[in-house]
Design a protein around this nucleic acid. Structure first.
Lengths: 238, 238
DNA sequence: TCTTGTCCTGCGGGAACCCGCAAATTTTGC
DNA sequence: GCAAAATTTGCGGGTTCCCGCAGGACAAGA
């Protein structure tokens, strides 16, 4: 059994290394990569079936690396180990998990015990282990009281990239008006109309405000934007 | 001599602790705080004159903590120790450094040697030590080829918060047209007109696109937005 | 003093945005 | 198969944004 660790922070990497050795005595080799890109390459070259992956790395972030790894070997077991439980990350991971794949998501703030337990559960028992906090965020979005639907989230991303309504309509193959409808739903769900402080109604540019609120609530974050921007450029702009 | 470490990651905190003890044998006590708020409190209570400060912490980030510490004791020596050299951070730090204060800015990716050297230089020699990479970003903004002026940056932040042109005009005590002028400068400097891919001119909502580009280039980041949002709410919205 | 440069300001218009209303269409549940 | 519910689409208008043009205010320099 071999485990690949993908993590850019040296301290965290060596901590992980130790944790893996302690939790999985049956593990022969522990490999390391210090960014997403080299993580992909190593996983491919060494046929690693067990990966511990940090999110947010330079070069290529954990979500993208995981996606290509899973594309090549959907049965790879991946344990995500992240500082934050931003909705954007949670959503990003959920989007790329293949049918029936086993994975885990634990926060760096978790205790040693939790980490080791997760390592054993995911790698040995093929059991998914999602941190309680992360799980909470997942739930909130399905029980769509305030959470955004996928459709709404996609529109949000397009808006955040700076596309016009017309451009979005074309990308999404919708009429102009439909895009605007979805935008209005978005505005409601993000409480864009709630005005901090006083002043007349017209203090906010709604489309911009929606994105600001999404960023403040971590529904969106920089790495989600980067991903979307890259996709946009690849798809040639239309 | 006492040193206060403000850092939320336990691994990094203990690493720092060791580094401080190694670099500064004359140091009697090393204190620790695990978020910005308790950092402020400890600094006040213990009259720490030497602080190592992480940026981006929950509760209160390093820049805000440093500001209140410096407000109370402008001669405090602060060494910022950060993962990133986002322009937003660099600018945020520069904005709060008091006249003649001594501080440092080193990246977490720096070697042990660099860190220890910086510790000695800042705390013992009262000499400012700014990481080469960070310095580069500072320069770029003064030699205003592409860098944003402070005026432009402020407008950018207001736009990113979602304020309308009119609201910004009122906040900044300018005419509507002046705000729009500044916006146009912003659009130029951020290359908002450069279109990835093909398509007619009108693919982008310029105001939104400008913010997107700023985020992608790290001219803005989430914590800068949070700060601005808090200021906005405190100032009652006008 | 007279340029020259930079910044602020007002005017005007074309484009984009925001959204109420109502009809057409698709999806859902039974 | 049908009715209810949700989604999509078009129309029309009020508002905001984007920006070219041009006239003023103020400072620096010949």
């Amino acid at each position: 059994m071999r485990v690949l660790i993908v993590e850019d922070d040296p301290l965290h990497r060596s901590y992980l290394n130790e944790a893996v050795r302690a939790a999985l005595p049956e593990c022969e080799t522990v490999l390391e990569a210090d960014n997403g890109l080299s993580g992909e390459l190593q996983a491919r070259k060494l046929r690693a079936e067990h990966v511990v992956m940090d999110l947010q790395m330079s070069e290529r972030n954990g979500i993208e690396a995981a996606r290509t790894i899973w594309r090549e070997r959907p049965d790879t077991k991946i344990l995500f180990w992240s500082n934050y439980s931003d909705e954007a990350y949670v959503r990003g991971v959920a989007r790329i998990v293949p049918e029936g794949a086993t994975y885990g998501y634990v926060l760096k703030s978790a205790s040693d015990e939790r980490l080791k337990l997760a390592l054993r559960s995911v790698f040995m028992e093929s059991q998914c282990v999602i941190d309680r906090e992360v799980r909470g965020i997942q739930q909130k979005n399905l029980g769509n009281a305030h959470g955004l639907s996928d459709a709404e989230y996609e529109i949000l991303v397009d808006v955040a990239l700076g596309l016009t309504d017309k451009a979005i309509a074309q990308r999404k193959k919708l009429s102009l008006r439909s895009v605007q409808n979805r935008l209005q739903q978005l505005y409601e769900k993000l409480d864009v109309y709630e005005i901090p402080g006083d002043g007349p109604e017209g203090w906010y540019n709604l489309r911009m405000r929606a994105v600001a609120v999404a960023l403040l609530r971590k529904v969106l974050n920089a790495s989600a934007l980067e991903r979307a921007e890259r996709e946009l450029r690849n798809s040639g702009g239309h």
